[in-house]
Design a protein around this nucleic acid. Structure first.
Lengths: 366, 366
DNA sequence: TTGTATGCGTTATCAG
DNA sequence: CTGATAACGCATACAA
């Protein structure tokens, strides 16, 4: 028995049933249908059941567009990331989508491609789509937050994550990069290393600045004097990691450990050291940052700092939803700082005879 | 000079200007505003300029919800993937978002978590959001396509990618897995290998079935008899790859090469062989599938088949938009088959003395 | 070339 | 508890 039977307007292809259709069929008003479906209090249980049954029968799907238009708020969250590749951002997005779905939201994803202009366009598109809130990890070329004023003036919650700017007055979820740098360096010190080099990232980016601060703190705490010759600026690529290691090994007094602010950079350094006949970790210990998938595959496996990607995504959405619920109350912007986890692997086991700290990579894709 | 001046309804926080506001301000009708903004032909250039200028001044943002409601079609594409992790899906999504944005669309992303029920919910949510089209890579637990009937009956374009079912009557973009298996195996044969094992994936999945077929074809073509003892079923994990290699090396006549249908599985096999004192590729050559990031990091670097992730995403969106434009015309479902690329690296250079085929991993994340 | 009127599907505000 | 009606913001058929 096909659904389309006595309905005056048959469910032709391309169209789906609306509340009006259900109302007509049951001989009641649209209002009643709406109440029954949205579980309103002033609705008879008998009526409610009838409506729900019919809705199921006709396979009624609410039109969220109409609902959102009427209510002025959609069930969509906008996400802007520099790009969806590598290990970090996909994992964060994974966490976000999961948290959002649980709360009944869907996510629109945009890539800025590290371009402020693109970021602005994305922002406009999201506002235009009437999203309920926006999550952003800033592009590298974003130097101020003025284009996000639109968001505030619309009264929409905004949460930055990972890539932020120093602005106390904005909601943000970040990793404690300082602590990551500190933990990593302290670990190297505990391994008996005394001349610890640092391959730093672009210092105008907060994350790299903080990792470096952590490094310096650990040195200071251990009474080790920082040596400018051991702190090299790189762009975090594998190539520059190798180049930096070449430079370090050419020093009259080369380092006995290297803490790189990124895994690819660390890998480049490690391979270069091996190419020059040094043993890792015995001659020079190496630690990276980000806990990339390949850290359990390189020889030796690479010690690194896990960034809690997924937790970051979930935390960001949670924060956003809280602000959304508070709806204007509780103004003060909140900052959530996640604690990094140092994952010790063979590349840094300088003192002991390379213990084992194996970790399986995640399951096969596709 | 602030925008809110003579307007009767000041732009209060939380609200934005609408066409009606612009119309009132200029003393013209909404129709005129609409036409000017949508670049309609019957509109005076002078008027058009005036409207555009005012729109800029007031920072007018069209409400896509309202527009979509009216037109019955939004500027949103829905994407359903099993999950957003690993290398494959993020790259595909990357390609999709890029292609979609260029065409003026935004993408909503949902994860099915390999669960049919979740896939259905995602589907409902997307339909409810009135997306203009849907792109799906099926969950592992999806055994038929009946829940996608809703999409067709709504007249929405549907495109499957990568994970599909054998159904000729549906738009799909897939990799030629058969060719990938064939190329990989032929390459091993050309390297002088004669006893080539195959670590196969779950055979109810088309992709693995096809990779295996390609393997068999290459053997047949070379006059090498397939040997059932050399074809092992696995779930493609690293562990099972290792277990399979153990089993193979215990044979009275062990293989001189292994073609695994996945990189993690290949890696497990490779490491196990080395653990048992075999040299790769000299004693046993190894080739994988998917071109994961770690293929350039493992020792030796792993020969693999690139799946053209990004192209797949772009092709899927292109196909979807074509169907959308055709709007009912041109019914026949189309299948786009992408050609895989064999990336030869050291793990399979059996004959020659391990040439070099280095490839840098992509740039550092975050 | 411009304006008038109507409807997309839903929800909120009233009144019964 | 239920119903009639208006409104969200935009786009189109039709009239001027």
């Amino acid at each position: 028995m096909a659904p389309r039977k006595k309905s005056s307007a048959p469910a032709a292809a391309g169209s789906s049933v609306s509340m009006a259709d259900l109302a007509r069929e049951l001989g009641v008003s649209m209002t009643t249908i709406s109440r029954a479906l949205s579980d309103h209090h002033s609705i008879g249980p008998a009526m409610k059941q009838k409506v729900l049954k019919l809705a199921k029968k006709y396979n009624y799907q609410p039109n969220r567009l109409a609902s959102a238009l009427r209510k002025g708020k959609s069930q969509l969250l906008g996400i802007i990331v520099p790009y969806i590749e590598g290990r970090f951002f996909p994992s964060v997005v994974h966490g976000m989508e999961t948290a959002a779905r649980r709360a009944g939201y869907n996510v629109i994803i945009c890539q800025s491609n590290e371009d402020v202009a693109q970021e602005q366009h994305n922002l406009d598109a999201l506002l235009s789509a009437q999203v309920a809130g926006i999550l952003v990890s800033l592009s590298r070329t974003t130097l101020d937050l003025q284009h996000f004023e639109k968001v505030r003036s619309r009264g929409l919650p905004l949460v930055l994550f990972d890539r932020v700017l120093d602005d106390a007055d904005i909601n943000a979820v970040v990793l404690n990069d300082y602590e990551g740098g500190y933990l990593s360096t302290r670990h190297l010190i505990e391994q008996g290393c005394r001349r610890i080099a640092h391959l730093a990232g672009p210092q105008h980016l907060t994350i790299y600045k903080n990792r470096r601060q952590g490094y310096l703190s650990a040195l200071r705490e251990a009474g080790l004097p920082p040596d400018d010759a051991l702190i090299l600026d790189t762009d975090m690529t594998q190539d520059q990691g190798a180049a930096a290691m070449r430079q370090l090994l050419a020093l009259p007094e080369p380092p006995d450990a290297v803490f790189a602010a990124g895994d690819y950079c660390a890998l480049g350094a490690m391979l270069e050291a091996q190419r020059q006949g040094r043993r890792v970790p015995q001659d020079v210990a190496v630690a990276g940052f980000s806990n990339e998938g390949f850290t359990v595959i390189s020889q030796p496996n690479l010690t690194s700092v896990d960034q809690r990607c997924e937790e970051m995504g979930q935390a960001a959405v949670r924060l956003l939803l809280e602000v959304l619920q508070a709806d204007g109350a509780a103004f003060g912007a909140r900052q959530v700082v996640l604690r990094p986890e140092l994952i010790v692997r063979d590349s840094s086991l300088h003192a002991t005879k390379a213990g084992k700290a194996a970790r399986k990579p995640r399951a096969a894709a596709s």
